[in-house]
Write a protein that binds this DNA or RNA. Structure first.
Length: 548
RNA sequence: GACCCUAUCAUCUAACGGUUAGGAUACGGCCCUCUCAAGGCCGGUACACGGGUUCAAAUCCCGUUAGGGUCGCCA
């Protein structure tokens, strides 16, 4: 490769490889420290699988006194969306998954290996690519999209493995004269790796999560620098960045497993130490056809991590659910350590199940959310609901802010210690509906009380209102309910009622039902005594007035 | 089509050659009970199939089948 060609291929002034290596020296970290990363594409959307992967990587790094960084993989400019990086940053911040390096919401990019945005690292990739071309380890390819398309068609038709390899690698052996002619003719070109792999040979990789995997060597001359913008493809960017940034552990979805031989080839070509690879199974969903499939951006709203914030799932519920997917032993740990933050769980990378992808289970997530909320104090619930409402339901936020004490009292109803708590509220978007009758007098609907007689209902309500005292504790309150029951021919004792239903107008349960419907407008509610206390004597009396 | 990964209750999974195959969620029942939500107790359901290896297999090996993934100048 002549210097003339190299200069035509890479016309810009580039730093030398030595300069780059000097600028980004290896990390000085204690023995055994893990450096891992989350490397999303800025598509305006953080996929739950991506978040899952990042969370796993973050735990691994931060539990092994290492570094977790965020790198933005924006080498495909067609997919770029304004503000997309903020979407990622906000999601991570929301869950407390903190990168040590990379873009931040308020301080720009932090970290000594900056920039962490691939489009800003173009010169770095180009410098290495230039060196590879100079060495003959890579070459310019002038094949057009149509050429590539045609080749694939032919190969597929003949039942051959598609790809730019062997005799199908048309530009692999162009002479300098041919290259020069193409360049002078202004033909666009990409840079391809001159693969040294032999598809008939095998390579065994020791994957952190999969164990030993045997794969064919990679013989395709992949594109490393794209023609239209000179930016690298994923493979090349991964090589350069994870080398320079000192990544020790590459945690990613198993959809990357087939390209591991390529990545190993690349690292070997450069003479760089290999990172430890760990490929996790992909999160799945049950499709309409009853078959499993990847969680899909188009079909599944919960594929977007933002879904859970929008619906007011507690952060810890999502984290605990995902942690449970990583290490099933998390459940046992949680049971034994009900008050310790999820981030203190010792996640064990070797215990991540090496199975097919888990089906995303919303029901289980809900169940975990109930437990998470049950562990909170009423004040915590209030704060969380308010934070959610401010963002997604401003008018509800106003109600919450104007009635702080009342709301906390409401959230405190039947809030016991841990498992004994009420577990109906588990996502904040439901709070408004559950609290509605505290703020708006419900319409009285007697059909809910059928077949009780109107006069009985009226009398029960009136008599209870007359003796109701908010100072009563639960026992005293219930004694009065029983008293009213007795006065009106309702059984005070459920056993007696069940033994002889026809001997009474109904039971004490029916009396409570009358009160409940009048007070809340519903046939089901939390503890009625507590509700009445919060409403106060006057409001209770008002709601118990049943017109003739 | 080629290559790779995976296979235990409905779901997430435990088991790392010897267990009545364990737990959680879901489901059903009973108890508790002013309704609901809880809580307590109990219950049913699983080693994909076929061959080996072994005294012994869910576990190791091979095959079959099934599901998933990859085969882009997307990541």
């Amino acid at each position: 490769m002549t210097p003339e060609i190299l200069d035509l291929l890479f016309p810009n002034k580039l730093p030398t490889v030595a300069e780059i290596e000097a600028k980004y020296p290896p990390r000085q970290l204690p023995e055994g420290a893990v450096v891992s990363r989350l490397a999303p594409s800025p598509t305006g959307y953080l996929h739950i699988g991506n978040f899952y992967q990042g969370f796993m990587a973050e735990r691994l790094a931060h539990q092994h006194n290492g570094v977790f960084f965020l790198r933005i993989e924006d080498t495909d400019q067609k997919r770029e969306i304004e503000g997309a990086v903020d979407v990622v940053l906000k999601a991570l911040a929301h869950y407390g998954v903190h990168p040590d390096e990379g873009s931040t919401l308020d301080k720009g990019e932090v970290g000594v290996y900056a920039p962490y945005t691939q489009s800003k690292r173009k010169d770095i990739y180009q410098a290495y690519a230039k060196e590879l071309v100079a060495k003959g380890a890579a070459y310019p390819c002038f094949c057009s999209e149509e050429d590539v398309e045609m080749r694939r068609k032919v190969q597929t038709k003949q039942g051959l493995r598609p790809g730019y390899y062997g005799s199908y690698a048309k530009c692999r052996n162009l002479t300098d004269e041919e290259i020069l002619a193409n360049l002078k003719a202004g033909k666009p070109f990409c840079i391809r790796l001159r693969s040294t792999g032999d598809y008939s040979k095998r390579i065994v990789v020791d994957d952190l999560l999969k164990g030993k995997v045997s794969l064919p060597e990679y013989d395709i001359d992949v594109v490393i620098i794209k023609a239209n913008d000179g930016l690298p493809t994923y493979h090349f960017a991964h090589l350069i960045d994870d080398h320079l940034m000192g990544t020790t552990h590459v945690i990613r979805g198993e959809d990357w497993l087939p390209s591991v031989p390529l990545h190993i080839q690349l690292f070997n070509l450069m003479g760089w130490p290999l990172p430890q690879y760990g490929h996790h199974a992909l999160l799945q969903k049950l499709g309409e056809d009853g078959k499993r499939r990847k969680i899909s951006k188009r079909l599944d709203p919960e594929a977007n991590i933002a879904y859970f914030a929008e619906h007011g799932y507690p952060q810890d519920a999502v984290l605990e659910y995902l942690m449970n997917l990583m290490n099933a032993s998390f459940e046992d740990w949680r049971k034994a350590n009900p008050t310790i933050p999820v981030m203190d769980f010792p996640m064990d990378i070797h215990k991540i199940s090496n199975t097919a992808g888990a089906l995303f289970d919303m029901v289980k997530l809900n169940s975990i959310a109930r437990e998470v909320v049950a562990r909170m104090t009423a004040e915590e619930v209030y704060d969380k609901v308010l934070t959610w409402a401010k963002e997604y339901k401003p008018e509800f936020a106003t109600v919450l802010e104007n009635n702080r004490d009342k709301c906390i009292a409401i959230f405190n109803i039947e809030r016991g210690i841990g498992t004994k708590s009420r577990k109906d509220l588990f996502k904040w978007e439901d709070a408004e509906h559950e609290m509605e009758f505290f703020f708006n007098r419900p319409a009285y609907d007697e059909s809910l009380l059928a077949p009780l007689a109107h006069e009985d209902i009226q009398k029960v309500a009136a008599e209870f209102a007359a003796i109701y005292d908010p100072a009563d504790d639960n026992q005293a309150w219930f004694a009065k309910v029983k008293q009213v029951a007795e006065q009106n021919g309702f059984a005070t004792d459920m056993k007696a009622y069940k033994a002889d239903p026809s001997g009474f107008k109904g039971s004490v349960a029916d009396v409570a039902k009358i009160l409940r419907v009048a007070i809340t407008g519903r046939v089901q509610s939390p503890d009625l005594c507590s509700i009445m206390k919060i409403l106060g004597k006057d409001e209770v009396a008002e709601r118990l007035k049943i017109n003739g």
